[in-house]
Design a protein around this nucleic acid. Structure first.
Lengths: 141, 141
DNA sequence: TCAATACTTGACTATTTTAGTCGGGTATAT
DNA sequence: ATATACCCGACTAAAATAGTCAAGTATTGA
């Protein structure tokens, strides 16, 4: 059970941006250098973030991206949604209406995974981008 | 972010077993039929569960597996551990001591993922096998 | 005793997902 | 004009997943 890099990098990149004044565009090149993330990969990620209105883009020299909202207002769940990362603990979701293992009944663990999903999603709803402050960049002990 | 089938099936299978008296061995064949899980796959899974002392095996005709503890005593976290499913939200763990992205400092999101990991693991520590009762097998609405 | 049942083990494999890269754009500032 | 920096779809190598397969061993019951 692990997070994909796209989502992790998205959070990292946005957290990076939130360390700078919101008015000036931040270029992907700079983020790439500071956070050691491939520039080409960042481009892919930011297209999604833009489509989902988390950032706006400014082209040309001295261009870059700008956060659309104050970091205090940006929930991690929004970022996850933008990147398409679904916290789906299991195949038999409520949406599928199909039951687990192709049967019309819930599998024996169905409610458990539902509960876990809710648990995790609640965590991401509560966390804001602003919670990842510079203070986090300490040495590992 | 999703759970692998091995872990899910392990929980399903053990939950299935816990619906029957603990003294009589439950064969994988029966579990396979009731829960629609491949028998060959179940065999692989139960070897792990056995190695980690969650079940004991009885060979031969009328053989099968027996839970080593009361379902009330079996934490889901134990099952996860047995199957090797690690809730590792990210590469830069405390254990690696290496820092994120090869640097000696924590990445900007390091503490976040740590916190998430703890959050999820706490959930599994609290959940017992007995919490997945027969009552869960309702129709999907 | 001997056939059937059921666990044991390691190796193998097709498919899917992940984690990117590549190539060719377009818009803007200087 | 030219360099910068965003835009976009298609592609791909590598890893993980979700199993299967072959060849056992131990035990029971007829």
């Amino acid at each position: 059970m692990k997070l994909n890099t796209k989502t992790r990098y998205a959070v990292m990149a946005l957290a990076d941006m939130s360390n700078f004044p919101r008015k000036k565009p931040v270029s992907l090149r700079d983020i790439s250098l500071r956070q050691s993330i491939s520039l080409l990969y960042l481009e892919q990620i930011f297209l999604k973030l833009k489509k989902n209105n988390l950032v706006k883009s400014i082209r040309g020299t001295n261009g870059g991206y700008i956060l659309n909202k104050d970091p205090k207002e940006i929930k991690l769940s929004e970022i996850f949604l933008a990147i398409d990362e679904k916290v789906k603990t299991v195949g038999c979701t409520k949406e599928s209406k199909k039951g687990c293992n192709g049967k019309s009944t819930k599998c024996i663990t169905h409610d458990l995974w539902d509960e876990l999903e809710l648990h995790i999603n609640t965590f991401f709803e509560k966390k804001k981008l602003s919670d990842l402050a510079k203070i986090n960049q300490n040495k590992i002990q």
